[in-house]
Amino acid sequence: MTHLTPADLIDAMEGVLVPERRAHLAVCEECRGQLDDLAAVLNDAKEASIPEPSPLFWNHLSTRVRTAIDNDAGSKPTWLRWQTLVPVGAVATLLLVLMISVPRLDRPGTRAELEATVSADAVALDAPSENWDALAEIVGELDVETASAAGVIEPGFAEQAVLELTQDERMVLTRLLQTELARVQS
């Protein structure tokens, strides 16, 4: 017959081992030894009492629980705390600023639409006019700080927005303006 399993040994220790396993235990020294060891350790564990706190502690604990519940009831939901609101607000503000300052070019499809308009108007993009060369040169080289220092622009003016565009964005803007000028001239 097989030895007692861990569950059998626990049952044996608690006096609820089934009769057929009890029969094995009666003849198996190894299982009996294991059972005695477990029982001895359990006895040690049972005798290990825990330190009794001060008698005043129990009422103190009740008071702590009451206070904690009161504080908890008065606190805002997690999502309303400043630790959450500040980063969320910062991200929202950043998104808003981006949406305002780069209104069209960030939207998928817009740039393709612009380019389609340009090609539909059959503008010779490879050979820009002298005026456009000059404009591109000014816009391409000038940065915001230089322009501000020279008093060319004031904060908030359209020029500043143009100067802050990326190279690609400036290209698209240039093409758009060329198209518009060509249409007016014709």
């Binding site: 861990p6 569950a7 040994l9 626990i10 049952d11 060891d37 477990l38 001895a40 350790v41 359990l42 040690d44 564990a45």
Partner: peptide, 19 residues
């Protein structure tokens, strides 16, 4: 219940080992 008995057995066995 089976897992509880197994955990109880191993807890006692480990306790014996540690002590």
């Amino acid at each position: 219940v089976g897992a509880v008995k197994a955990n109880f057995f191993h807890a006692l066995a480990n306790l014996k080992k540690i002590l």
